[in-house]
Design a protein around this nucleic acid. Structure first.
Length: 228
DNA sequence: ACCCAGGGTCATA
DNA sequence: TATGACCATGGG
C-alpha cells in the first residue's frame, strides 16, 4: 500500500506551509512580466533577468522603444537569455500585438478567453507563456503549467502528468484550487520555489515536505475530454 | 566536456 | 499525431 498522491488543494497547502508567501512574479511591472515570460522560455530565470537588466540599462524600457530600436541593439541586450534570434522575433511579435490592442491595460479589459486566444495567435507564444502573461501581468485566473509543475506531480505519484496535455494538467489544478485568483498565483509560484530548491535530478522527492505529510484521497487524472 | 534550463515551431514518417 | 531537431547562453 503506497501513499496516495495529493490532490491540488493539499499540494498547495503543504507548499504554502513549507515556503510561505511568495508574492510573485519576479519583476517590477506588468511590462517586465511580458518580457520575462518570453525571455525565460527554456531558460533559467537568472539568464532572463540578466537580459531584462540589460534592456533597462540600455533605456529600452517601453514597448514602443523596443519596437523602434535597431534589431542589433535589442539582440545584444537579450543575448544572455539564449536563443536570442528566435526570442527577438517572438518578442517583437508579442509587443506588436499588445501595442495594437492599445497597451496592456486595454488588453486586460477583454475576457480571459479573448485575451488568451489573442496571445496564442502570436507566433512564438504557446500556452505557458500566454498563461504567465494572463496570470502575472493581467491578473486573470489561469493556472500556469510549466516543467516544474509536471515534474513535481510525477514525483508525488501522479504518473499521468508526464504525458498528459497542457490543458489536462491545467484543469486538474483549476478543478481543485477553487476560485481565488491569488491562490493560482501563489500555487504556481510555490511550485517553482520548490522546484528550484530541489533543483536538478532528484529522482524521488526525498526531503520533499509533501512526500510524507500529505496523505489524502487520491484524485484521478481528469478524463481527457479535450483530446482528439 | 557534458547536461540542462520556468518553450515553441517546424520538418519528417 | 507523434517524435526529434533546433534555437544558444550560462551554470552545475
Amino acid at each position: 500500500m503506497s501513499i496516495a498522491a495529493p490532490d491540488a488543494t493539499c499540494l498547495y497547502t503543504q507548499l504554502y506551509h513549507a515556503y510561505g508567501d511568495q508574492r510573485w512574479w519576479p519583476g517590477d511591472s506588468p511590462a517586465e512580466v511580458v518580457l520575462g515570460a518570453v525571455l525565460t522560455q527554456n531558460t533559467v530565470w537568472a539568464n532572463a533577468a540578466q537580459a531584462i537588466g540589460r534592456l533597462k540599462a540600455a533605456g529600452l524600457d517601453s514597448f514602443e522603444r523596443l519596437l523602434a530600436a535597431p534589431e542589433d541593439r535589442v539582440k545584444a541586450c537579450i543575448r544572455p537569455a539564449g536563443c536570442y534570434n528566435v526570442k527577438y522575433g517572438r518578442l517583437m511579435n508579442l509587443l506588436r500585438l499588445v501595442v495594437d490592442q492599445g497597451g496592456l491595460c486595454a488588453l486586460g479589459t477583454l475576457t480571459t478567453e479573448e485575451c488568451r486566444t489573442l496571445l496564442l495567435s502570436v507566433k512564438g507564444i504557446g500556452p505557458e507563456t500566454a498563461d504567465c502573461i494572463l496570470l502575472y501581468a493581467l491578473g486573470k485566473r489561469v493556472f500556469v503549467v510549466d516543467r516544474y509543475t509536471r515534474r513535481l506531480l510525477v514525483r508525488l505519484g501522479h504518473d499521468w502528468a508526464r504525458e498528459s496535455s497542457y490543458d489536462t494538467v491545467q484543469s486538474w489544478f483549476s478543478q481543485g484550487l477553487g476560485t481565488d485568483p491569488q491562490v493560482y498565483n501563489e500555487c504556481h509560484a510555490l511550485i517553482v520555489q520548490h522546484g528550484k530548491a530541489h533543483c536538478r535530478a532528484t529522482p524521488r522527492c526525498y526531503g520533499c515536505p509533501m512526500a510524507r505529510s500529505c496523505v489524502t484521497a487520491q484524485t484521478p487524472a481528469p478524463s481527457d475530454a479535450t483530446s482528439a
